[in-house]
């Protein structure tokens, strides 16, 4: 009698488990349909997917290249992409910043950025630092996202750390958000996480905008350096350019 009850109970549990798995399968198949939908190819798309397919390539999870426009200081305010370093206790809005004598700007608080060999930040790409990450004098060598920038006579470089979450950027009605926790700077033989949010989830993620017609974007984030020789300093990153979806 006891064995019979146990068998019935087991059968009930298995039935519930099977039903739960069945639901998950439906959900995941729906997700796959959305991700593999080809715009304009209506004949091959399941009937359930059109309303969830992003109609605009600059909406939803953006996979592709955030091409970096070079920074420019000819105007009253810096344009394009740039970097600032906030002193401990300061703020991204008011500083105080470290003045970089190697900056091309009159206001040396800004260090201008230029596109690297990949053209910019590639979501879905491999942009890890090379090994070794530094030359003999401590200049950073990573050059895929941005070209190394001379800062205090030593070049800093940026890459994504494969050990952290893969970079991800979302767009909703022209507003960008995401996870750039893997973003890392290399300077003077030191490695500094410059992610947003930080790998432990603290801090804010990147913010920005994207033009729904042209793909022109701005992406800004701040990242507190925790530990190491720049403990307590904060990096301010501003990337600007044009997003191109992955083909």
């Amino acid at each position: 009698m006891k064995a019979t009850r146990s068998l019935i109970g087991l059968a009930a549990v298995l039935a519930l488990f099977g039903a739960a798995c069945g639901d998950d399968d439906k959900d995941s198949s729906g997700t796959t349909a959305v991700e593999t939908t080809v715009p304009g190819d209506e004949t091959t798309v399941p009937e359930t997917t059109p309303e969830t397919t992003p109609a605009n390539p600059y909406e939803g999870e953006l996979v592709g290249t955030f091409a970096v426009d070079a920074g420019d200081c000819t105007g009253a305010a810096p344009a394009g992409s740039y970097f600032q370093m906030v002193m401990p206790g300061g703020t991204a809005e008011a500083g105080p910043f470290i003045a970089n004598a190697d900056s091309a700007c009159t206001d040396t608080n800004y260090s201008l950025l230029e596109a690297g060999t990949d053209g910019g930040l590639v979501i879905g790409g491999d942009q890890a630092a090379p090994d070794p990450a530094f030359d003999a004098t401590g200049n950073g060598l990573a050059d895929k996202i941005i070209a190394p920038v001379t800062f205090f006579g030593v070049a800093f470089a940026a890459a994504t750390d494969p050990a952290e979450a893969a970079p991800m950027v979302m767009a909703a009605d022209g507003v960008l958000s995401g996870d750039l926790s893997a973003f890392t700077a290399y300077y003077g033989t030191g490695v500094f996480n410059q992610g947003a949010p930080k790998p432990d989830g603290s801090g804010d993620g990147p913010t920005g905008t994207i033009d729904l017609e042209t793909g022109h974007f701005t992406l800004t984030w701040t990242s507190l350096i925790v530990g190491g020789s720049f403990d307590g300093f904060t990096g301010v990153w501003h990337l600007e350019g044009t997003f191109t979806p992955q083909a």
């Binding site: 004098t137 401590g138 200049n139 006579g153 030593v154 020789s229």
Partner: peptide
């Protein structure tokens, strides 16, 4: 640059 790399 070497000073930075060593003191860093």
């Amino acid at each position: 640059p070497t000073i930075v790399g060593e003191f860093n």
